[in-house]
């Protein structure tokens, strides 16, 4: 920052206007925002308010006229449902497990890719491809080509080690789904952390080299603290995206056997579209929202931090 820039306010809102923006100007400025805002409210908020309303009703679609107001009995049923508890636990394991493994693998890959070597751009392109593949196609790929007990590539590779014939999908359904998720999300974490590594000021690294720090202590003392924000962001964003995972569960295991690999989105889907129980699935939806809000709270704070950091820089 040079001296003169400091004198100016960071926000450009002072440019070319009165200090207090008059009403007409205020609307002129807000105007372009309104269509997007109204659209988003209609498409996302009104359905959610309806969900709250439905969650207080006993309503099954296959029994017309069954709709009645039951206060919180749906919530009581949800918490009394032992399957729901299993599914909730599955969701936590699936989400956090996949995210954490993806972050660790992503960090290793990012460190690898942060060096100069021949064909780095190509390797990066290869690595991000799993993330881009349509999730339904990716799940299909895992279910058949990779994990099929007799013809799958994984068992073929494991044959020399005596590992053939494992029925991955039925014996380890949750782990199978997670493997597919990790394969898809590791590239995202890698990209995020690579962006973090590349935003590291080189003069710091050079200073450390001049100061005689070893590669490992440079990593631990400088790189890791710098990456902290990116790692946190990766965990939080990954959680938000993965808690909603549906496609892989639907494609690979249908939540089975039983509910062994079902997560909340899939379970709610089952209740709503196979069981037609609108009231209960709405109540479960609300519970998921509350759980997500807790995670989102962290997320918003994190993003806000990055956001205000950027404001300072502007």
């Amino acid at each position: 920052m040079t001296a003169t820039l400091e004198e100016r306010p960071a926000a450009p809102e002072n440019a070319g206007g009165k200090p207090a923006i008059d009403k007409a100007e205020g609307w002129r400025r807000r105007g372009p925002l309104l269509p997007a805002l109204i659209f988003t409210i209609i498409v996302t908020q009104i359905p959610f308010i309806l969900t709250l309303y439905y969650s207080l009703q006993s309503w099954n679609l296959v029994r017309p006229g069954s709709q009645e107001f039951v206060w919180f009995s749906n919530y009581g049923d949800v918490f009394a449902d032992s399957q729901f508890r299993t599914v909730a636990l599955n969701t936590v394991i699936m989400t956090l497990g996949s995210v954490l493994i993806a972050v660790v693998l992503g960090l290793l890959l990012a460190l690898l890719l942060n060096r100069q070597f021949a064909g780095r751009g190509i390797v990066r392109t290869l690595l991000i491809t799993p993330f881009l593949i349509t999730p339904v196609a990716a799940a299909l790929l895992w279910k058949t080509v990779l994990l099929d007990p007799t013809l799958g590539l994984i068992n073929f590779v494991l044959t020399p080690f005596g590992g053939s014939g494992t029925e991955w999908i039925s014996q380890f359904p949750l782990a199978s789904v997670m493997a597919a998720l990790i394969w898809q999300w590791t590239p995202f974490m890698m990209l995020l952390l690579l962006a973090g590594l590349q935003s590291m000021p080189t003069d710091q690294l050079e200073a450390a080299r001049v100061d005689g720090a070893s590669a490992w202590s440079t990593f631990r003392e400088l790189t890791l603290p710098h990456l902290r924000r990116f790692i946190e962001l990766g965990v939080v964003l990954g959680t938000i995206y993965l808690v909603n995972i549906f496609d892989q569960v639907y494609m690979m295991t249908q939540g089975g056997p039983g509910v062994a690999s079902a997560n909340l989105p899939f379970y709610i889907y089952q209740r709503a579209f196979l069981g037609f129980d609108i009231g209960q699935s709405a109540a479960m939806g609300v519970v998921v929202v509350i759980l997500t809000l807790i995670a989102a709270n962290f997320a918003l704070r994190l993003i806000f931090r990055s956001f205000s950091g950027e404001q300072e820089a502007a």
Binding site: T4, E6, E7, R8, A15, G17
Partner: peptide, 21 residues
Amino acid sequence: GPSGSGKSTALRMLAGLEPID
């Protein structure tokens, strides 16, 4: 003037980029 002296602000007032209060 040193930073924070108001020299740039004065110029921007003349330019019409800052209001004259």
